[in-house]
Design a binder for these strands. Structure first.
Length: 574
DNA sequence: GCCGTTTTCGGCCCGACTGTTTTCAGTCG
């Protein structure tokens, strides 16, 4: 099994954890964490780079030492250094870091003084009252450990929530806080504002003349499960849903600085502050300072301007080249929801959708769209009631009639045709040529070997009738992993065949991911942002696709459903 | 461990809150 970039990132993170517990140089620890983040965000497969003998030290954050380690991991599947470190520190000890309040120093003390090596032993020691006796620990800490330990064990896997879920939680909480009074300005920052596909916790920022009132209201919110901390300017709670929410109250003239600070990402902020440092400036959540003098802080624009940068859209703030682009004046003009003129992947009650063709069309019209493509399943997807050729011809005819009947929206007759195991399609070419648009997708045999899966999809997109490759990795966030496939290769082929890649806007799918959006753009491949709506209401998923597209640096011209109808049809050669 | 037209050595982002303390280290974001 080839080593993935994620495997390498995980190894570096583990090393960072262990070094931290050992009390190693914190800057070395940071270098490993930084490397893990960078490796995880690369589009290019490190295995391939190593195979081609590329110079890995060209990757920022990777020096000689880490480059050698990457080569070793790729060639042997493991890293001697990590194996050595594991001899010093039992692996179970790393789980202790997940308990809030326990950091590397405390974990080390528990290990050295009490011989605790894992969560189970920690629980036992706490129950026996041994922990409160340790220097630097007390009864409260011991109590807290007992409280948290089961929660951590339970949530050991994945605790991030979908952005769509976060929107609901944040929406309610913001309304509640507003109704309690004392709020002059309120905004959700963090990864939520960066429109990341999943959100770990919510960061809410408030301007208030009465911080105490806001904080009191916050901790009294009826779905608060636990108050982690409560202060004048900062409080944290865990909601019953398990989501952590941090609330910060800042003065008005610091709002921009605080918003910038708490929007992150951490990596982006560090990069910005490094620039500030070179200019002899200091940035914190209260503003930009030259010595004692505050020179910016009320707005984000001001903060960026103070360090010589234009305002950078939150979705780009990942330290993936946006700082360099900003410095050189080549930030993209990112796509916005208002640019979208239609939806190119939707379902109706002809198959597994809930609404009629007409209902879907009218819903699209009410969103201000010019067109909507109806793309029901083909017969192989039996579970969805996929249509055969005769049924599709009936549907095409129905769509023609409805188009005559209603104004202000054009319904495109389309299909989401199954890509069969050998890469052929589930419908004959003659029929495919009759549709306005053909979307092709994999719906079964997710477990083919990487090479066969890749070739399967490449064969499908080489069919000139195929316009769009839908949900190209088949993942369902939190439920189903993406299937093994060489997406980079597929995108390269798509560049030659003129095939469009779909960014599926369903909040649980959102493939292409941001990094592949950016890669596709760089390869000159166009994107369709489509909702895959199975109900009229879920046409509103478009905003999630837009968020991901913006994270992937996409501009209106990169996305085909920003085209007016006539240009779209021309693009599709129909 | 990374990085560098001010540096190949000496830097490396910054502040709030908590608990255990009597002035602060550790943790967290």
């Amino acid at each position: 099994m080839p080593v993935t970039n994620e495997d390498i990132a995980k190894i570096f993170d583990q090393i960072a954890d262990i070094l931290e517990i050992k009390g190693d140089n914190p800057y070395r620890v940071r270098a490993y964490r930084n490397a893990a983040r960078i490796v995880g965000g690369l589009t290019q497969d490190l295995c391939e780079l190593v195979e081609r003998g590329e110079d890995l030290t060209k990757i920022p954050g990777i020096g000689d030492a880490l480059a050698k380690k990457i080569v070793e991991i790729v060639k042997t599947g493991s890293l001697r250094k990590l194996e050595e470190l594991k001899k010093d520190i039992p692996p179970g000890l790393l789980d202790l870091l997940k308990i809030p309040g326990l950091g590397p120093k405390k974990v080390r003390a528990l290990y050295e003084k009490l011989g605790i090596e894992n969560l189970e032993q920690l629980k036992q020691a706490a129950q026996e009252g041994k922990i409160r006796a340790l220097e630097g620990f007390g009864a409260r800490t011991e109590h807290k450990i007992l409280e948290e330990i089961d929660r951590v064990k339970k949530a050991k896997s994945e605790s991030r929530i979908l952005l769509s879920h976060a929107e609901k939680i944040a929406g309610h909480l913001v309304e509640y806080l507003k109704s309690g009074g004392g709020i002059r300005e309120i905004q959700v920052a963090g990864s939520f504002r960066r429109r990341k596909e999943t959100v770990g916790d919510l960061d809410i920022l408030v301007i208030s003349d009465n911080p105490a009132l806001v904080m009191d209201n916050f901790v009294a919110y009826d779905v608060v499960d636990e108050v982690l901390m409560k202060g004048e300017t900062r409080s944290s709670v865990v909601l019953k849903s398990g989501v952590q929410v941090d609330l910060r109250v800042v003065p008005e003239d610091s709002y921009g600085a605080a918003l910038q600070y708490f929007t992150g990402s951490k990596a982006h902020n560090i990069a910005v502050r490094k620039i500030a440092q070179k200019e002899g400036l200091k940035i914190n959540e209260y503003g930009v300072f030259r010595g004692e003098e505050k020179i910016a802080g009320a707005t984000e624009e001001e903060v960026y301007a103070a360090v010589g940068l234009p305002w950078i859209p939150p979705e780009l703030r990942e330290d993936r080249g946006e700082i360099e682009a900003a410095l050189e004046g080549r930030l993209p003009n990112l796509i916005e929801l208002r640019h979208i003129r239609g939806d190119l992947h939707t379902h109706t009650n002809w198959t597994d959708g809930h609404n009629t063709v007409e209902e879907m069309a009218l819903a699209a019209k009410s969103l201000g769209y010019e067109y909507i493509a109806i793309t029901d399943h083909s017969k192989h997807t039996t579970i969805a009631g996929g249509l055969d050729e005769a049924k599709f011809r009936e549907q095409i005819e129905q769509i023609r009639r409805i188009n005559e009947k209603i104004d202000g929206i054009r319904i495109l007759s389309g299909v989401e045709v199954d890509i069969l195991e050998d890469g052929s399609l589930d419908l004959p070419d003659e029929l495919l040529a009759e549709f306005d648009i053909v979307v092709a997708a994999v719906h079964y045999k997710f477990d083919l070997p990487r090479d066969r899966q890749t070739q399967r999809i490449i064969r499908a997109i080489r069919n000139p009738n195929v316009d769009i490759l839908a949900h190209p990795t088949g993942r369902l966030i939190g439920e189903r992993k993406p299937y093994e496939v060489d997406l980079e290769e597929i995108i390269k082929v798509a560049a030659r065949t003129g095939t469009v890649m779909e960014l599926n806007a369903n909040p649980q799918r959102l493939d292409l991911t941001d990094i592949y959006c950016k890669f596709a753009k760089e390869m000159g491949v166009r994107i369709a942002i489509s909702t895959d709506a199975h109900t009229a209401d879920s046409l509103n998923y478009m905003r999630f696709g837009i968020g991901q597209a913006r994270r992937g640096w996409l501009e209106p011209d990169d996305v085909i459903n920003t085209l007016p109808l006539d240009k779209l049809l021309k693009f599709l050669h129909r």
